[in-house]
Design a binder for these strands. Structure first.
Length: 515
RNA sequence: GGCGCUAUCGUCUAGGGGUUAGGACGGAAGAUUCUCAAUCUUCAAACCCGGGUUCGAUUCCCGGUAGCGCUACCA
């Protein structure tokens, strides 16, 4: 089944900060729908709230959307036939249509002051009535209100809500109906001449020929007002699809309190865009059958269906996001990972950023090859890239004293065989030709360990744990086969912070042990 | 307060008048490994409550409860 009218959808954020995951999900669903239907995706900036909107936030928003892999066919940066795409540049359009509504009698001038309205609301609350506008100015003769306006009386323009139920068929919620008694005549143009959100959104959506309004369900209760605006203007009403709210783990609306909530936050934590995208798609949507979890972009476009979106709110589960991220990290070509990982190592290695944003670093090919080995060693233990430096601390930083004092190591250090193992391995390393040159190989080291095994009778944990403590500071960690060459190679590199070789480590350790 | 939306394992969800209510994350246990991580296997874990309708409701209807949203000259 194909739509006779080509699909046009829009994502319309307010530039008030970084893109939030809830909005990102809305953007993604719009985008998937547009791409699947071979329709048009539009970016529109809702910057009528001058207090909160700031121009540089628009750039952030665009960057965040692009990072997620989304694009658009019309928008402030790419243009289009239905522009401008910033509401602040459309004020004249809003005023013109407000006057038209006024002249057709669909709207009227309201001379009530804010204080009067405030009192009205307070009285209604006291008398347990609905605090909706009384309709006081509804029946002022148009001629008279025009005269009062001309005379300079301050006034706003209100839409006349018809006295019959207003309903619409929501794609995700089904039919919804509101009694007109609960909808007061909304102000569409403030006395200041600035239009109100619920009005501009309709003007823009209609003029931009939006066919499907896919947005958060916080707009659900405002929709009847908007529907009657379309009707007052004689314009076709688009299809609505209201997406459920994303909640935090406490089932409250997701906010900064819950930690990372913006796209930029997750990017900085080392979450890959395809992981976040995949996770967001699964929040409130599942494919038919519901057993698949991993979707490429192409598969999402293929499989996505707005009709299958669930109406119930969803808790944002970072653990599942990180699980998906681990999956995509494992799938990533190592060249990509190496580039992505570099900024995370930079601080612990004492590298300085090349640019002001602190995201560009450069290292010699030699160092780069070595870091690739480090990444390959550590990546299985990680589900976010920002965990890399901590995991790498066993290579980058070594503290013999801390290793001996760590409560975690106490038990191992107290084992019957530990002293013998440590003494033997120390002697062997210190006497070894290759180790003296910081050129010990994995094979060479293995041989020493085997000798210690034979000489002490220690095996398994009792053999390996003490040695690992001496060399890395922790009793468990990656295999020595990979670790030893990394230590030795690292020690030869011209890094701002020196990486200790096997010999250097064992020297520091035995000094600390004997003191 | 009014109106609206929502309700399946802890979480995301599939399903749907008769099912052993399926999958995934997380959890637990085991296998593997010197250890940790990863990986693999197994296990535990759910239809909000009350009324209808029906031979039979978790599924359909109504009510309650709870959560969320809207109720502005905010967006």
């Amino acid at each position: 089944m194909t739509d006779p009218v080509p699909v046009r959808v829009r994502f319309a954020p307010s530039p008030t900060g970084h893109l939030h995951v809830g909005n990102a999900r809305t953007a993604l669903f719009n985008w998937l729908f547009a791409r699947q239907k071979r329709g048009t995706m539009i970016l529109r900036i809702e910057d009528t709230d001058l207090e909160r909107s700031q121009p540089h936030f628009e750039g952030q928003l665009v960057a965040d959307l692009k990072w997620l892999g989304l694009d658009w066919d019309e928008g402030p940066d790419v243009g289009g036939r239905f522009g401008p795409y910033r509401q602040s540049e459309r004020l004249l359009i809003y005023r013109q249509h407000a006057e038209k509504l006024l002249s057709t009698g669909k709207a009227y001038l309201c001379f009530c002051t804010e204080q009067e309205l405030e009192q009205e609301r307070a009285r209604a609350a006291r008398e347990h009535r609905q605090p909706i506008y009384s309709g006081k100015c509804r029946s002022i003769d148009p001629g008279e209100s025009a005269r009062r306006r001309a005379a300079g009386d301050s006034c706003a323009i209100r839409l006349r809500i018809p006295e019959h139920p207003i309903g619409f068929d929501d794609i995700v919620h089904g039919p919804i109906e509101f009694s007109s008694e609960v909808i007061s005549d909304p102000i569409i143009l403030r006395s200041s001449g600035m239009p109100v959100y619920n009005y501009v959104v309709v003007i823009d959506d209609a003029l931009m020929k939006i066919t499907h309004v896919i947005r958060g369900d916080d707009h659900l209760s405002n929709t009847p007002k908007q529907v009657s605006l379309y009707q007052a203007l004689g314009w076709p009403v688009p299809q609505f699809a209201h997406l459920s709210t994303i909640l935090g783990s406490d089932r409250e609306r997701l906010s900064k309190r819950h930690g990372a909530t913006s796209i930029a936050n997750f990017r900085d934590l080392g979450v890959l865009p395809e992981a976040l995208r995949n996770y967001l798609a699964l929040l409130g949507w599942a494919p038919s059958g519901g057993t698949r979890e991993i979707f490429s972009l192409e598969e999402l476009i293929q499989e996505f269906s707005i009709e299958r979106v669930t109406p119930s709110p969803a808790v944002f589960d970072v653990e599942k996001l990180y699980w998906l991220n681990r999956h995509y990290i494992k799938e990533s070509p190592s060249r990509r990972l190496d580039a992505l990982a570099l900024p995370y190592y930079a601080r612990s290695l004492g590298l300085g950023p090349l640019d002001e944003a602190g995201s560009n670093y450069s290292v010699s090919p030699q160092i780069s090859i070595w870091l690739e080995k480090v990444t390959r060693l550590l990546i299985p233990a990680v589900d976010r890239l920002d965990q890399l430096p901590e995991k790498a601390s066993l290579i980058f930083s070594y503290d013999a004293k801390a290793a001996l004092e760590s409560p975690e190591n106490l038990e191992v250090l107290g084992w019957r065989q530990t002293d013998a193992v440590l003494t033997r391995i120390t002697v062997k390393i210190l006497e070894d030709e290759a180790a003296r040159e910081n050129q010990l190989t994995a094979e060479g080291f293995k041989k020493m360990v085997n000798e210690v095994k034979a000489e002490t009778g220690a095996k398994g944990k009792e053999l390996f744990h003490p040695i690992r403590i001496a060399l890395t500071g922790a009793h468990s960690g990656p295999e020595f086969d990979k670790l030893i060459p990394i230590f030795e190679e690292g020690s030869h590199l011209p890094l701002p912070r020196h990486v200790l070789s096997v010999r250097e480590r064992i020297e520091q350790f035995s000094r600390a042990r004997l003191s």
